[in-house]
């Protein structure tokens, strides 16, 4: 009788003694970032984009001045990235478009990760009725293919604000993550340590948070960051295909207008087309370098020391 009462306390005390003081997440991240200059560069670029996203729209007037004498011009002192087909400054268009792009992508990625990981873990661990009904819902979300669905929805919903865009992208986008988290959980739950935890009679929330989540965390963290880039890609793509109104300030509108004004055919005003494309690439590269660092923070197997 006394053993059943004592076991947990002994376990806790032993834990507290054996486990070394855990260093915080930010401390680990900083240490890992400093190890490679490429990671620092990645972090720097992300911070710069975030700052531009915050203050960008305040730097320029609501309606950008246009110069009809300078149409699709190359880079100059007054216009470092040239001008568009109306003679507006490309750099200004780029800077004012950043906030929409980042806010929508970040919101969508966050929604995706929270929904996807929670549903995948719970379904994979509990199996049974919870699993099959959750997977039925996941199947439904996956079955309606995300991007075509967005295209079809664009006929009734105009995605005027970044929050609307992020919400729709996030709600339609978590299916894939839920499915792969579930399949990893299915494999994990057959492992000894999870069986042991179950044998001890630990509650489902405890097993999911303490035993399963730490094993899934690297994958989920990578998905959060990569999710930001994929959602940048899909929202810019929606604007690029020209199914949404051009009023919104978004990089995709620039690409759409550049292609439709013949930039890919004539080659004049190449910077108008390239500026948003290269911004996407630069931001993606930076996020990739950060993912590399994250991977090492979360996954002890990758640590080199």
């Amino acid at each position: 009788m006394s053993t059943t009462l004592d076991l947990p306390t002994i376990g806790n005390r032993a834990d507290a003694v054996v486990t070394p003081r855990r260093r915080g997440f930010w401390h680990n991240l900083w240490r890992v970032l400093r190890r490679k200059p490429t990671r620092m560069a990645g972090a720097f670029v992300v911070v710069v984009f975030v700052v531009i996203g915050i203050i960008g729209p305040w730097l320029y007037p609501a309606n950008l001045p246009t110069d009809s004498n300078l149409i699709l011009s190359g880079p100059s002192l007054a216009h470092p990235l040239g001008t568009d087909f109306q003679g507006a400054d490309v750099l200004a268009l780029l800077v004012t478009g950043t906030r929409y792009v980042l806010v929508a992508a970040a919101l969508a990625a966050l929604l995706t990760v929270v929904l996807g990981a929670a549903i995948g873990l719970y379904a994979g661990y509990r199996r049974g009725l919870a699993d099959s009904s959750l997977m039925r819902i996941t199947d439904f979300v996956l079955t309606i293919p995300g991007f075509p669905l967005l295209l079809v929805l664009s006929t009734v919903w105009k995605f005027g604000s970044a929050l609307q865009m992020g919400l729709v992208l996030g709600i339609t986008g978590w299916g894939g993550l839920a499915r792969s988290v579930r399949s990893q959980t299915l494999s994990l739950r057959e492992r000894g340590f999870v069986e042991a935890a179950r044998g001890l009679g630990l509650s489902t929330p405890h097993v999911i948070r303490r035993e399963l989540l730490p094993n899934i965390a690297p994958y989920v963290a990578m998905n959060l960051l990569i999710g930001v880039t994929t959602f940048i890609y899909s929202q810019v793509g929606l604007f690029y295909l020209g199914v949404l109104p051009f009023k919104a300030e978004n990089w995709g509108v620039m690409i759409f207008l550049a292609v439709n004004n013949g930039v890919t055919q004539t080659g004049s005003g190449l910077f108008y087309l390239l500026a948003p494309l290269l911004s996407i690439l630069l931001l993606t590269l930076a996020v990739v370098l950060l993912v590399d660092a994250m991977d090492e923070v979360f996954n002890p197997r990758l640590r080199e020391d």
Binding site: T229, Y233, V259, T264, L273, L281, T284, V288, L289, D292
Partner: peptide, 16 residues
Amino acid sequence: IAGSLLHGVPQYVMAL
């Protein structure tokens, strides 16, 4: 890094 970068390159960028 090349893999993540190319994975991140949107298809329309590659195509264009």
